[in-house]
Design a protein around this nucleic acid. Structure first.
Lengths: 129, 129
DNA sequence: GCTAGATACGTACAATTGAACGTTAATATA
DNA sequence: TATATTAACGTTCAATTGTACGTATCTAGC
C-alpha cells in the first residue's frame, strides 16, 4: 500500500500544517491567529503556505462563506510517520533504537514518561495483537 | 554552556558530514568513495559540501599531503542532539514521549530492541547518578 | 441588484540548497 | 628541478523556500 508521496514539506509549511491538524480544520484567519506569539508571520504569508500545502496534496480547501476552509488531505499521523522515518533514515540509518537511546541519554524522558513506557513495552510483549 | 550555534546543516551536507563522523577523519576522496552505491555525487560536489561544512563550523580542514583532511569541529553527538531537539520541537512540541510512542506504534522497535530498552529503563530507575 | 470588504491566487524576490565546473596552487615523481 | 597530477577555492546556476504583495473574485449587507 505504498501511497503516492507528495512533494516535501518545508519547515514553515509544517508549522502551518500542524495548526490545521490541531484545529481539525481552519480558515487562513484562524491559522494566523493560532500562531504562537513569538511567531510573527504576515497574514498573506500564511495564506501562501496554506495554498502550497494544498498544491502539494497535504491539505484540502473547501469554499465556505467568504473564504476557504482548509483540512487535512492526508492523515496527520501518516505525515508524521513519514517525516519520522525520513529523519530516522537520515540521522540514524533508519534504526529507532539509537534514537531512543539518545533521548534517554539526553534526559528527554521524565520519570513519569519512563513509568508509562515500561508499561507500554510490557503489554507489547504480552499481547502482541 | 549555551554554545554559539552554527548555520543550519542542509540535508546533503548532513549526508556528507555523517561519513566523516563515521570515518573519524577523511579526505574528499575517501568521503566520495564511502558514499552509498545508490548515491552518485560528483567528486566536486562532495568537495563543495565539505567546504561548506568547514565554513559553517561543523568540520575542520587540515592540510596533509596533497589535500585536506576533514574532521569534526563539533562532537557528532552534540550535532545529532541538536538536530534531534530541533526535530522534536518542530514535530512533537519538544516532547520525547509522543515520539517514542509513535516509534512503538509504527513497530519500529524489534523484540530485541524492546528487551534492551526495558533493561535500560530499569537501570535508569535504579541508579540515577 | 449594487457596493464594500474580505479572500484566493498568481506573482515576486531574496536567501538557501543541491549540484557541478574552471582556475589556481600545491605535490609528487621522472 | 621540471612536469604531470590532484585538490582547494571561488563561482555558477537552477530549484526550493521564506516571506510578502496586487489584482481579480467572491460574499454579505444595503
Amino acid at each position: 500500500m505504498m501511497a503516492k508521496d507528495r512533494p516535501p514539506l518545508a519547515k514553515s509549511e509544517l508549522e502551518v500544517a500542524r495548526i490545521v491538524w490541531q484545529l481539525g480544520e481552519a480558515t487562513v484567519r484562524q491559522v494566523h491567529e493560532a500562531l504562537p506569539d513569538d511567531r510573527d508571520l504576515d497574514f498573506w504569508t500564511v495564506q501562501t503556505y496554506l495554498r502550497r500545502l494544498r498544491e502539494k496534496g497535504y491539505l484540502t480547501a473547501t469554499r465556505r462563506g467568504q473564504g476557504n476552509v482548509y483540512a487535512p488531505a492526508v492523515k496527520p499521523g501518516k505525515v508524521i510517520g513519514e517525516l519520522t522515518d525520513d529523519f530516522l533514515d537520515r540521522l540514524f540509518d533508519g534504526e529507532a533504537l539509537p534514537l531512543v537511546q539518545h533521548l534517554i541519554d539526553a534526559h528527554r524522558l521524565s520519570a513519569d514518561d519512563i513509568e508509562l513506557l515500561q508499561r507500554r513495552l510490557e503489554e507489547l510483549k504480552g499481547g502482541e495483537k
